[in-house]
Design a protein around this nucleic acid. Sequence first.
DNA 1: GGTAGACCTGGACGC
DNA 2: GCGTCCAGGTCTACC
Length: 295
Amino acid sequence: VNLALAARPPFNLASTVRSHGWWQLQPFLWDEASGLLTYTGRLSSGRVLEVQVRDAPGAVSVHSEGSLEPEEESEVAGLVTWMLSLDQDLAPFHEMARQEPKLEHVVEKGLGRILRSFTLFEDTVKTILTTNTSWAGTIRMVEALVTVFGTPSRSSAQCRAFPSATDLAALDEESLRHVARLGYRAPYVLSLARSVASGELDLEGLKAAGLPTGELRRRLLAIKGIGPYAAANLLMLLDHYDFIPVDSWAFKVVSHEWYGGQPVGATEVEEAFARWGDWKGLAYWFWNWSFSGET
DNA sequence: GGTAGACCTGGACGC
DNA sequence: GCGTCCAGGTCTACC
C-alpha cells in the first residue's frame, strides 16, 4: 500500500529523524543517502508491519508491503503522523528562534520536531534504557529487546517490532536482566510492562489527554525508573517543552557556554533557558553549543 | 526537603 | 588476559 500524508510546513524528514538519537535504535532504520526511514511497528490488531517513509513535496510518502484494510490504513496514517509530528505547528517557536543567533539554524533547517516511536510505551522503555548508561549501552539493550523478544513482521522475518507491553509482561525478571542484559533496570521495565498490559496504566492515553505539564509530569514520575531527566525527556516527546532533560551532558555544555567551564547544577541549566518559557526544552535541545561536549 | 550509597554494565586502564 | 576503576540517572533509607 502507498499513502501520501500531508506535513505542515516547514517539514524535513532528515531533520526530524536526526532530531535526537532515536533513529539509531531498533526498530528504526535510517538510510541517510537515500533519505529512507524504515520502521517496524504493530497495529492494534496485532499485525506487525514494516513502513517505509520518504520525503515528498509538502508531504511524506508511506509505503508498506501488502494490502491493508481501510481501518488499518487510517491507523497507519495516524501512527506515522504521530511518529513524525507531521501536523505540528512550529511557527511560534520559529518566531522566537529567529531573534536568537544560537537558534538561527532552527529556522533555516525547519527544526523542532522530535522523532518518536508508534507507542509511548516503546518510548518510555527506551527512555529508561538511556538512564545511567552510555549511548552504546542503550543501543545494545534496545537491540537485545527487539531481536530476542520482538515480533517479526509478516513480510520479512528480519524486521521485528519492539516487544509490546503484553510481550514483556509475560517474561520474568531474569530474562530481562541476563538475556537482554538490562541489569538493574529489568524490574523497572517489567513492572511498567505489567501495569500497561493489565490496563492499570493507560500510557497511550496520555498522548491526547490534554493534561497540563505538571499533571503529566507527576504521572510520569510515578513510574519506577523515571526520574526528573527521564520525565522531561518524555514530556518533550509529548510536546511539552517546559522542562529540560538535564543529564551530565547538560551540565557540561551549560558550564562551558556561560560559566567558563566552572561546575554547574540543575538550577543553572534551568535558569539559562528560563526566558524561553514554554519552548525551553526545544531551545535547549536545538541550541548551537559552542562546546561540543567532547573533552 | 535534601542527600549518601547502592544499583549494573561495558569500556578504559594498569599490570 | 585479568583485576580495578569509572560513567551514567534513579531509588531507598536516613537525616
